[in-house]
Design a protein around this nucleic acid. Structure first.
Lengths: 302, 302
DNA sequence: CTGTTAGCGCATTCAC
DNA sequence: GTGAATGCGCTAACAG
């Protein structure tokens, strides 16, 4: 083995390293991939109802980071949409010989079941994990807890939540946390399903205010949705934050550009994506879940 | 040649095609890359002062599209930052044997000079092009013309422009178009340099209003910057669009979510990226420039 | 632990 | 026009 782990004495290894340095030797990725059948590309698969999930800015950030990390190792990244109704595609993806590793974004548990064992040690999830699929995710529970408690601390009691899509398991922890805080303060829970889009947020705002007109705060599990809520409330003539406070989740670039600027919770998306990509590229088999912190960012909207 | 163009009779080709279909044969990308020295990955190189340019949402859209297109051909995409001051990196990038093709985003003409001839037919630019480097870009000239004329038609005369970074050659056509319209209506030109960021937009707004207090419209060559201008004007207590109209360029996702919603010009970024990626992957040598239309989108801000 | 050998799956280059 | 040989640069599985 010209590089790396082969069983060899320390002296021999040093000599090779010296030769490599002096001759300016650089390994050929294609030849290595061919000989070791290790693949030449890192696939990013995003699960969702439609291919439109690929256009989400969150996916863009993950992809950007992964492509940047992969570049250092001379591998490329490809982007795939995995239909929610037929995650069979995952197996198809996996037996492409050029596949070096796989990062699944927003996986469902059934989808994770279809990961072939041949991919063990070369797969990671951003979202929930599974056996032999290490996961990297935001600590949604404490993140939600932090935001909702901030709303409570600023005097709100009739707090509603717009969730993520119901099929997304990693949103469950957030909903749990919301329920728990509401129970603690003896408040009624008001949950409306969302789908992480702004359009849905505007609709959710209208639904919410029709059903529970005395709502004094809305927490959306996505900034995009929260911006939509802002829009919906504006259309209803509701003042933010005077009448209703609004908080989001993720701290996207535009959270600080909206009017009013969005109170939200910030997440190290780049760090998460980098960790997932690195885990796959470095072939570390594990089924550990790593959680990244969610930190409250108070702006004007709540 | 198992696939494609080799000299062979039509009958033989058909037989091969039939065999391929029945055996479910799928070529091995790594083996092909090794034998033909054609590389296994498509590199996207973005030019800018700092690596922060990689985080631009525009780059995200380009990367997403490229990664999706590349996926169909079993190749991956890697992302690179090219320092403006030392575009030497481009040559370094190019002699990596795993490089299959290159798409340069926002190139400068000097940077394009450093494209090695070995890359001919496997390189494309999003922005200005050069000899042997086909370019794919927005028709900035007519796009700007459309926006500025819209401002004129709605009664504005003292129109300022916030440009892109001065080193970006593809912004020149836009500045030209602005000058031309202003000359036609006999208006004074008021140009402030920008850098495509929101922060710069807010500063530019302050500078503009200090220097030319009677300005009644601002056109920014980037939506992000325009949103910053919106912010800056708000801080100054200037009403938009009552006192000053604001227009942007690009129609990013958040243009319709700002308050007031941003009037801008929409561009088929995905189409442009797809065309560039396809040109590189299909090895079409050319030095033709392809321009994509810019279409005015009137919302509330102008 | 070391040195050697045999492919990985294709494109290319010759003879036919 | 067709088929068979050679090698791309490396890893893996041996024998020393």
């Amino acid at each position: 083995m010209v590089t790396g782990q082969g069983p060899a004495s320390a002296r021999a290894r040093d000599r090779v390293a010296a030769a490599v340095a002096e001759l300016g030797y650089v390994p050929d990725a294609a030849a290595r991939a061919l000989a070791s059948r290790s693949g030449t590309r890192l696939a990013i698969a995003v699960i969702g109802h439609t291919a439109a999930v690929l256009d989400d800015p969150y996916v863009g950030r993950v992809l950007t980071t992964a492509a940047h990390i992969a570049a250092e190792r001379e591998v490329g990244v490809s982007l795939h949409w995995l239909s929610l109704s037929a995650p069979v595609t995952l197996a198809g993806l996996a037996d492409s010989r050029s596949l070096g590793g796989l990062v699944v974004v927003n996986p469902t548990r059934p989808a994770l079941e279809t990961v072939p064992r041949a991919l063990r040690g070369r797969v990671a999830a951003i979202g929930v994990g599974a056996r032999h699929v290490p996961s990297f995710d935001v600590d949604n529970r404490s993140g939600t807890d932090g935001v909702v408690r901030h709303l409570v601390n600023s005097g709100r009691r009739r707090i509603a939540m717009v969730t993520g899509p119901s099929w997304l398991p990693c949103g469950d922890r957030a909903v749990d946390a919301y329920h728990q805080v509401m129970q603690e303060i003896g408040g009624e829970t008001r949950v409306v399903p969302g789908d992480f889009t702004a359009a849905r947020g505007a609709m959710a705002a209208a639904e919410l205010m029709a059903r529970w007109p005395d709502t004094d705060a809305v927490f959306a599990l996505s900034d995009l949705t929260a911006l939509g809520v802002l829009d919906g409330l504006h259309a209803l003539g509701v003042q933010v934050p005077a009448n209703v406070a609004v908080a989001g989740f993720d701290d996207i670039a535009f959270a600080c550009l909206s009017r009013p600027a969005l109170t939200t919770s910030t997440h190290p998306v780049e760090e998460i994506a980098a960790a997932a990509a690195t885990a796959v590229l470095d072939r570390c088999d594990a089924d550990r879940a790593t959680f990244f912190p969610s930190r409250l960012v108070v702006r004007e909207s709540a």
